[in-house]
């Protein structure tokens, strides 16, 4: 019997729900803390994991690290060793990097905000003014709405860029610039599992940043054929798996894909949608393990 590992930084509501769903499916996953990992990169999957089992005993490892860097490095290790993971390394690497996500979506012609990339203060100003004010500056890697800046005018742009150049490390000298979308005080988060949009929520907020991690509230959003189509296309564009697709509604009512999350949080979403997201995700994960085996 192949084992299932749940790789975590710590146990949050989502991981607890996933463990319960695995147990309901008759599988007891081994919880593996990323802080306990100490891998010999020159040795193979036969070495012992913190669980006491060999890594090669795992037929599936579910990556749920809140630490993006730890999760990505470990997914790279498991991909090299041929251990199946959800999500897989390629999908996670694209989703963890907004530049790569934008490129993947653009390659498939999926609607998204106008986005530019620049690396110096002067070219960043040019990029911002090319999309027009207000613009949005985002770290290329990051989450939970951290360090997003709505740039309303030239003076704001110069100040934010100077701060990023002076106070930020090299990651903050990559300027990912998007056109601001005048959304209706809400955005949409849709949950895509495999090739199915299982449910979606509106995230409401008075603030222009609508992340529930920043206090936005959730309500059910009907999965229309239009929403379903763009979400499934977006998920396929980044490699597919268990994903949360965040979308913006334009004033004209069109949908734009804003970002895609590969270790999605869903604690606030099962209640308003009535969908047991953990159960659906675990069913997909176990099916992947069966298919690969």
């Amino acid at each position: 019997m192949m084992r299932v590992g749940l790789l975590v930084t710590h146990i949050r509501a989502e991981e607890k729900a996933l463990i319960a769903a695995f147990e309901a499916a008759g599988v007891q996953p081994d919880v593996i803390l990323d802080r306990d990992v100490n891998i010999d990169l020159n040795a193979g999957a036969g070495q012992i994991a913190p669980s006491g089992y060999a890594w090669s005993d795992y037929g599936l490892i579910v990556e749920r690290c809140v630490s993006t860097s730890r999760g990505l490095y470990l997914l790279a290790v498991f991909a090299t060793w041929g251990i199946p993971t959800v999500n897989d390394y390629q999908t996670a690497a694209v989703c963890a990097d907004k530049v790569r996500t934008t490129l993947a979506l653009a390659e498939q012609g999926i609607a998204q905000p106008q986005t530019r990339l620049a690396f110096t203060p002067d070219s960043a100003i040019e990029a911002i003014e090319a999309v027009g004010y207000p613009a949005v500056l985002k770290p290329a890697t990051g989450s939970w709405g951290r360090l997003l800046a709505r740039v309303n005018d030239r003076e704001s742009a110069e100040a934010i860029i100077e701060h990023r150049q002076t106070l930020g490390d090299y990651n903050h000298h990559t300027y990912y610039v998007q056109a601001y979308v005048a959304k209706p005080q809400r955005d949409i988060r849709a949950f895509v599992v495999g090739d199915q949009t299982v449910c979606a929520i509106y995230r409401h907020a008075e603030h222009w940043i609508t992340n529930t991690a920043r206090g936005g509230s959730a309500s059910n959003c009907a999965v229309t054929p239009e929403l379903d189509a763009i979400c499934r296309s977006a998920a396929r564009a980044v490699g597919g798996g268990v994903l949360a697709v965040d979308l913006l509604e334009t004033p004209a009512g069109d949908l734009l894909v804003n970002e895609i999350n590969h270790t999605m949080e869903f604690r606030n979403s099962s209640a308003p949608t009535g969908v047991d997201i953990a159960q659906v995700a675990v069913a997909y994960m176990l099916e992947q393990m069966r298919v690969i085996a």
């Binding site: 930084t9 809140v66 630490s67 993006t68 860097s69 890697t141 990051g142 989450s143 939970w144 951290r146 949360a244 999350n261 590969h262 270790t263 999605m264 949080e265």
Partner: peptide, 8 residues
């Protein structure tokens, strides 16, 4: 403490 790379 929450680190800069924490998130979804």
């Amino acid at each position: 403490e929450v680190e800069e790379d924490w998130g979804e």
